[in-house]
Design a protein around this nucleic acid. Structure first.
Lengths: 247, 247
DNA sequence: GTAGCGAATTGATGTGGATCAAGCGGTACG
DNA sequence: CGTACCGCTTGATCCACATCAATTCGCTAC
């Protein structure tokens, strides 16, 4: 790609990534680094890849080479059972790190699929390890990101293991709302990028149940839903629904 | 406890840890390091702490300072919901790393409780990060361990989100069997350290259901169970039960 | 020994969410 | 412009697991 730099300024812009000028700096890998450190990251994160809706960033079984951060768009990750059942393990939005499942065995163990037209920054993992040996704050931040992924997974286990359908969906909506807020979007109004079936898979419910609970929440004046468009009317009450006593 | 060090030589022996002479070298943090590197670890992992059954290594909310590896014994980790419901997120046995949940926020997010008299090695985290900047193979191995924890969590999500009770218990037993094998114990015969209720919490089932499925497996000649003692009669068939078509 | 208690088993009954089924709205495409 | 298909909603029925309840087992204490 470097041969284009001098020739096509526009595609340069597309391919050249600079963490130092990226709007996601505060959410993404550079978090907590000094300006000087961030500019060193620029040499590490040198490639950006576009994905059309439905395209796969990596699949279970693919050799692991790089981590990815979501620059634009929305991804789901899912694991497969031999018999075809699959389980959505997460949804990733701007600034979030993708691909950490591959580090342990040098092979990816899940699929990452774009839920809308998206763009990922590519972070060659060997170089990330190298650089994090030199930049303690990068090392520290990377460890924190992995740890938070573990904690998030524990939250999902809690949800799947001991919450009822309504609590699960309330937790899901409330989590999305928080993450949109952190990105400067509305806390109360957003478009779902995933289908009812994908939500259901993530929450351990069937799509019909997801749909019914949406309708119930709407009937109770908690939210309005029209297809993918959700508006949360009463955020405190939604939060309160999570972790309610079983009756 | 430190006031005893100079006084009772025996307790010194108890407290001094040497990875280089530890039988768990092949399972634990030193995995993949050269002898020379392992001896550098000895200075890092300088403390061993005993726990009686029921004691807590750390609780949600505790400040995070160190990781732990299980030297002897068995731990469970669990997260709590405000209303008192709790979810067992994992069981840890010899050589496994504990406490990674705390890295992300410098605060532990779950409880770790000894299920039998146990011993943990203490790994001050700041020093682990320091040393892993100097020893690439330690860094790499630590990243792999964290990644595998994420992958394991995905497996549990799969289990909780899309398996039936029998598949869950079969997966659980088969996983225990594998881990005991890796530690040189029998693959087919072992003692459960946890109660039916703890198994149930981990698997998203009630203790009565766990008990019933145990009985059913026994009636089918798959295993024998007597309280905590389990003997797997037909390991291939047990494996086959996991990820069976839904009917 | 036996009293007391927590863990486990087993049976009877209840229910939350799955499954099956029908219909609708939106949209891609010939 | 109509047709086909996908995603979603909603209703009727079913069933896997939860819940409630009664014993039993095995351990610890005294």
């Amino acid at each position: 790609m470097s041969e284009n730099i001098a020739i096509h300024p526009i595609s340069i812009d597309n391919l050249r990534v600079a963490c130092s000028t990226c709007g996601l700096k505060e959410l993404c890998l550079p978090l907590g680094l000094t300006n000087e450190e961030v500019s060193r990251l620029d040499s590490l994160v040198s490639l950006r890849r576009p994905f059309r809706k439905g395209m796969t960033a990596y699949r279970a079984g693919d050799p692991f080479e790089a981590l990815y951060t979501v620059r634009i768009g929305f991804f789901k990750t899912s694991v497969l059972l031999e018999d075809g059942r699959d389980q959505v393990t997460g949804f990733s939005m701007a600034g979030e790190l993708l691909g950490m499942d591959g580090i342990g065995t040098d092979t990816h163990t899940c699929d990452a699929v774009a839920l809308e037209d998206s763009e990922l920054c590519v972070i060659p993992f060997a170089r990330l390890e190298e650089m994090s040996r030199e930049l303690p704050s990068l090392q520290s931040h990377f460890h924190k990101v992995m740890s938070r992924e573990i904690v998030r997974d524990h939250g999902v286990m809690m949800l799947l293991g001991s919450m009822r359908a309504e609590e699960r969906l309330a937790a899901f909506l409330s989590n999305l709302s928080q993450r949109f807020t952190a990105r400067g979007y509305s806390a109360s109004e957003f478009y779902l990028r995933m289908t009812r079936e994908e939500i259901g898979s993530y929450l351990g419910l069937k799509l019909e149940t997801v749909s019914r609970v949406f309708s119930k929440f709407q009937a109770e004046g908690l939210i309005t839903v029209q297809h993918k468009h959700v508006r949360i009317i009463d955020i405190p009450r939604l939060r309160h629904l999570v972790a309610q006593r079983p009756c």
